[in-house]
Simulated assay, not measured.
Amino acid sequence: MTQRARLRWNGDAILAAERQGAARGLRLAAEHVLEVSRRRVPIEEATLERSGTATVDEPTLTAAVSYDTPYAVRQHEEMTYRHDAGRTAKYLEAPMTEEAGTVAEIIAAQVRRSLR
């Protein structure tokens, strides 16, 4: 008795779905890091906090979280400034490091979801 099986490989469709899931995961992960960092950003008038953005470059699968004020870098790097409770220098670096596992889980979940 001979059994036959036919396999159809839709590699291009799978790769496209995987890439789309990765891009969606990057966007969600960047938004997560932005939200965590906003809770730590030094706040006086909330201008720095409002300037925060999360972006994704889909062709290169690169995400960025940034703050855009003339003093954003100085506030981030100056460890001697005094801030309100819960607000601190390294308001972006610390969440990026602390949330690395969560970021990876968010991206992985979206890739898995796209391959269903």
Rank of each mutant, 00 (worst) to 15 (best):
D57F: 00
T47H: 07
A22K: 08
T69N: 08
V103K: 02
D68I: 02
G21Y: 02
V111L: 05
P95K: 07
E99F: 07
V111T: 05
E105D: 15
L92T: 08
Y91A: 04
I14L: 15
I106W: 00
K90G: 04
S51W: 05
L26W: 12
M1D: 09
A16H: 10
S37A: 15
L15W: 02
A30G: 09
S37Y: 08
L61H: 10
E35D: 13
R6D: 13
E99T: 01
D84M: 11
M1E: 06
A72W: 13
P70H: 00
P59E: 03
E58Q: 14
E58D: 12
L92N: 02
G25F: 11
Y71L: 05
N10Y: 13
R24T: 14
A108F: 00
I14S: 10
T55S: 14
E105M: 06
I107M: 05
G101C: 08
S37V: 02
M79G: 07
R8A: 07
E44Y: 06
V111Y: 01
T47W: 02
V56K: 07
R4A: 09
A13C: 01
A54I: 03
A89E: 01
L115N: 08
Y71K: 04
V111S: 08
L92G: 06
L48K: 04
T88I: 01
Y67M: 01
A5Q: 11
A13I: 07
L28M: 12
R113C: 00
T88D: 08
H83P: 03
T97S: 08
A72E: 04
T2Q: 10
R39A: 15
S37P: 05
T47S: 02
E77L: 15
V33T: 02
L61D: 06
D12F: 00
E93W: 01
A104T: 15
A104Y: 06
G25Q: 09
A23Y: 02
A13E: 13
L34M: 11
I43E: 11
W9L: 15
E44P: 01
V65D: 06
I106E: 02
S66M: 07
E98Q: 14
